[in-house]
């Protein structure tokens, strides 16, 4: 006869001595959240509010911003914090709603892959950006690229 061990109600959960990743994930959501409020509100202010908002965005607009390391770092930090924050949130939702072990595993690997690929892609795009590829589309770009 086999007996199934069921812990008594309210018995303390036993946990290994390793890192409590869920605690750090919980803390990360709050710390990154506060920073993201500042970074994303600043991003929206500059790109959607100032001047003529979304209608002013084009290649030259991006070139103008990323000519300044300040905005390069702003965007890269926002990219990392937001994708990890969003990926961890999606992981929580998968844990809550996906029933099967395999389904959960596949969904979480998909989330991890999307986050990792976009972080690498986005970081490379910001730091290897070349304002002089193709045909310069504005006077400011023609001036900038003539100097190269």
């Amino acid at each position: 006869m086999t007996t199934t061990e069921i812990a008594a109600p309210r018995s303390p959960r036993t946990r290994g001595n390793g890192t409590n990743w869920e605690k750090w994930g919980w803390l990360y959501m709050r710390v990154s959240g506060v920073v993201l409020v500042v970074l994303i509100f600043g991003h929206l202010f500059v790109n959607l509010w100032q001047g003529t908002g979304v209608s002013a965005i084009n290649f030259a607009f991006v070139a103008g911003k990323w000519a300044d390391p300040f905005w390069q770092w702003w965007d890269v930090i926002m990219l990392w914090l937001a994708l990890i924050h969003g990926g961890n949130g999606m992981r929580t939702i998968v844990n809550d709603y996906a029933r099967g072990r395999t389904t959960r595993g596949i969904l979480k690997i998909a989330i991890l892959a999307a986050v990792a690929i976009l972080i690498i892609l986005g970081t490379l795009v910001v730091f290897t950006f070349d304002p002089c590829i193709g045909n310069p589309s504005s006077d400011a770009l023609i001036q900038l690229c003539a100097a190269h």
């Binding site: 892609l121 795009v125 950006f129 070349d130």
Partner: peptide
């Protein structure tokens, strides 16, 4: 992130 990555392809693609 994907649409912004087009700035690395060409100004025309991004615009």
């Amino acid at each position: 992130v994907l649409d912004t990555a087009l700035v690395r392809v060409s100004p025309e693609a991004y615009d």
